[in-house]
């Protein structure tokens, strides 16, 4: 465990907590893409298949359970909670995310470490996580003004993977056998997708203005 990775995990945890706070405190999920939340639930379920088979550390197991439970509860809230579901921007959240799932599944069948069930689902989860933010970014551009908590949610979500890239660089130089190009490339693509969001987020922070994404 290195500081980059720990900071990355904490930033990821903060992003989830910010989202839970927004939904719980405002009883609203306006500006949040249900499709992105569903993709993230899928990412965690596909990646943590080894939750009960490989024990790595208490930290690892606890964090996996937290991510799975939180992503499923957010999806449940947005679909079933009577107050929250009313504020879902159904007509704006129209990204066809099933194509993302199909594409990533195909990609995992073609490009993986080993042709085993667990490895293919692991590669699938990495590819899917790289693109999972797309419905959310599209929704933000469509809904124009972004409320603070939603903006912070997306910011921390992007920052976590950027920190993971520093972690992979660090591990590449400190661990002889470390070389995981599937994670690294997916992580680079994922962080790049946040590029323009980070730019407008920084501008709004510098001007102390409301975050406005160009339509």
């Amino acid at each position: 465990m290195n500081i980059f990775r720990f900071a990355g995990d904490m930033t990821h945890l903060i992003s989830v907590l910010v989202l839970l706070l927004k939904i719980y405190a405002t009883k609203s999920c306006s500006g949040i893409s249900l499709k992105t939340q569903e993709l993230y639930a899928l990412v965690f379920l596909a990646r943590y298949l080894d939750l009960f088979t490989d024990f790595i550390s208490v930290y690892n197991t606890v964090m996996k359970i937290v991510f799975i439970m939180s992503s499923l509860s957010i999806v449940w809230c947005m679909r079933m909670h009577p107050m929250v579901r009313r504020s879902y921007d159904k007509e704006l959240d129209t990204f066809r995310h099933y194509f993302l799932i199909a594409g990533c599944l195909l990609g995992a069948l073609l490009v993986h470490e080993k042709f085993t069930f667990q490895e293919i689902f692991w590669a699938f989860s990495l590819y899917l996580e790289a693109v999972a933010i797309l419905p959310q970014l599209v929704l933000l551009q469509r809904s124009g003004n972004v409320d603070n908590l939603t903006g912070q949610y997306v910011f921390f979500l992007g920052a976590y993977r950027a920190l993971y890239i520093l972690n992979w660089i660090y591990r590449y130089f400190t661990e002889k056998h470390f070389g995981r190009w599937i994670s690294c490339i997916s992580g680079l693509v994922q962080t790049a997708l946040y590029g323009d969001f980070f730019y407008y987020y920084f501008i709004s922070w510098k001007n102390n203005a409301k975050l406005q994404l160009p339509a």
């Binding site: 990821h12 692991w122 056998h177 470390f178 070389g179 995981r180 994670s183």
Partner: peptide, 10 residues
């Protein structure tokens, strides 16, 4: 081997 290294990541 490098197989288990990244699997220790979240």
């Amino acid at each position: 081997n490098n197989n288990n290294t990244v699997k220790d990541e979240l």
